[in-house]
Amino acid sequence: MMNAPVNKIIDFSNVDGPGNRTSIFFQGCSFDCMFCHNPETIHLCRNCGACVDGCPARALSRDAAGAVCWDPDKCVECDQCIRACPWDASPRIRLMTVEEVMRRLRRTMPYIDGITASGGECTLQNDFLIALFTLVRQEGKSCLLDSNGSFDFEADPRILRVCDGVMLDVKAVSPAWSQLLISAPPDLVLRNLDYLLSVDRLQEVRTVIFPHQDRENEETVRYVASRIGSACDYRIIRYRPFGVREKYQRILGEETTPAALAEQYAELARSLGAAKAYVV
């Protein structure tokens, strides 16, 4: 039976695509972004056990094989385990089958426009998503992907046949900045940008704007805006240090991007033809 590691499911979300959506956050990411504000979603648990003893609710234990087990009924969501984890992982993950996710979704179906798969990086669960999206679309609901662009959609377009659109992060355009910021080159992300545009599956693009990184901010915004035009929304997101790992806060700063600065880039994007650029 196919399953996937699920970090959490939000029944009603108004920030993960149009309308009211149920968002499924899968554990595990293909990038390691400096500014990630939920780094505990990056890796899968290695069963090192570092979190177990510190759990004040005794919701964590180890089974006979040494695997870390989490009891959601006892958990008080204090996040002690996440702070204790040396591996940017979380013990609060459930391996769920497609049917288990569907069971949860059947409760929310009457109230939602659709679902959004997010993460971590949800495309790491490609086969799982194909199965899930197929079932959800049979119920007349839309399916969106929230992706960092590390999956080669052109090489394997199967998911796009059951997906209504991709919300794509374009975090960096220049190779050096990309390597530093997301620990990966930008090429595949940018190819995906063009490919998803060409097959009409680009729901929106998001770019994070950093304080004191004018050159990089501008290069990324110019690149995206000139390509997407008015084909989709372009969300300009302000960098916020909240949740960012300390070692990276030292590099990126403890300052939130001022709203006015982000607005300047939205304005730039609009002047380049990205009519639906706005700050969140």
């Binding site: 009603f12 979300s13 108004n14 920030v15 149009p18 309308g19 009211n20 009457p110 109230y111 939602i112």
Partner: peptide, 20 residues
């Protein structure tokens, strides 16, 4: 506050619950 920007997220909730 965030819901002010997303009235379209509230309508399906009302519709769904009215149908039930």
């Amino acid at each position: 506050e965030t819901w002010v920007k997303t009235p379209a997220a509230i309508l399906p909730i009302i519709k769904g619950s009215f149908s039930r």
